[in-house]
């Protein structure tokens, strides 16, 4: 697409090859994420979405291929620079990955403290506002991760990923385990952050509601590569068994609503 020429991608992956033993996960995979994208990464379970997210921030190296983050190769520059680059991204892990020895408060405060220069009072205000954003109560701040419910773990992890309001957010199934209302609020929150701060968000989701409400771009990962990218409509129009299957259920929900409405 021509309008992309002027923009440098935030993430640029070229020719990614990944395998575990004899089992290929990615083969010749290319993906570009541009500034301001709300990119939904979809694909079957075990397709390698989490692996791809981990590779974007150098938690895992592909067997071959190149990755650029913020316009520079992941491995470029001295240690401090590499770490600073990573700090510009907020990550929500699929299982939460909260620090089990810290309270909720300290978990969210961790990236703020790492950043340096903030007063404890300001950290408190930031942490409390993050808790409010993900609709946790102040009294939850002193709980340990082991004392949280599954959905609460997700929300605390999200609050931690958002602590610095970083310019790049990588979210692995952010709405899995949330009730529909909280999912909707989450979408609203990310949208408002996106509008105000020009965030770039890459999120993995299996939830078609979140997908259609949030994404302005969709990338489909199947058959070890990115099958299609584009707006939801563009991707929907691609004729491929996986894509047809994936979106079939969405149409099914829509149709049922319509028939119910017609019936009543």
């Amino acid at each position: 697409m021509s309008e992309r020429e002027g923009h440098s991608p935030v993430i640029r992956m070229r020719g990614i090859q990944t395998r575990y033993g004899p089992h290929w996960v990615h083969q010749d995979l290319d993906l570009d994420v541009y500034r301001g994208d709300l990119l939904a990464l979809v694909g079957g379970s075990g397709a390698g979405k989490t692996t791809l997210l981990r590779q974007m921030i150098d938690l895992q190296r592909p067997d071959a291929g190149s990755i650029e983050l913020f316009g520079e190769p992941l491995q470029a520059g001295p240690r401090a620079e590499r770490f600073a680059r990573r700090r510009r991204a907020g990550v929500l892990f699929q299982q939460g990955a909260l620090f089990s020895a810290f309270t909720v408060y300290d978990n969210i405060a961790f990236p703020l403290r790492e950043c340096g220069g903030l007063h404890e009072d300001e950290i408190l205000a930031m942490v409390m506002s993050r808790l409010e954003l993900v609709q946790l109560k102040p009294q939850h701040a002193m709980l340990m991760p082991a004392q949280l419910s599954g959905g609460m773990i997700k929300r605390v992890a999200l609050a931690r990923a958002l602590a610095l309001e970083p310019e790049l957010l990588l979210l692995d199934e952010p709405t899995a385990g949330l009730d529909p209302e909280r999912s909707a609020r989450f979408v609203e929150l990310i949208r408002s952050l996106h509008e105000g701060l020009g965030l770039t968000v890459v999120f993995v989701t299996h939830d078609l509601d979140t997908l259609s409400a949030l994404a302005n771009r969709v990338a489909v990962l199947a058959e070890h590569r990115i099958l299609a990218t584009g707006s939801l409509e563009e991707v929907h129009a691609v004729d491929h068994p996986f894509i047809n299957n994936f979106f079939r259920y969405r149409s099914a929900v829509g149709e049922r609503d319509e028939t119910e409405e017609a019936g009543s």
Binding site: E3, H7, R35, G36, H194, G198, L199, T200, N216
Partner: peptide, 12 residues
């Protein structure tokens, strides 16, 4: 795309 240009401007 509008959002991209907007985001690009914000980042510089």
């Amino acid at each position: 795309m509008k959002t991209r240009a907007h985001a690009e401007a914000l980042s510089h």
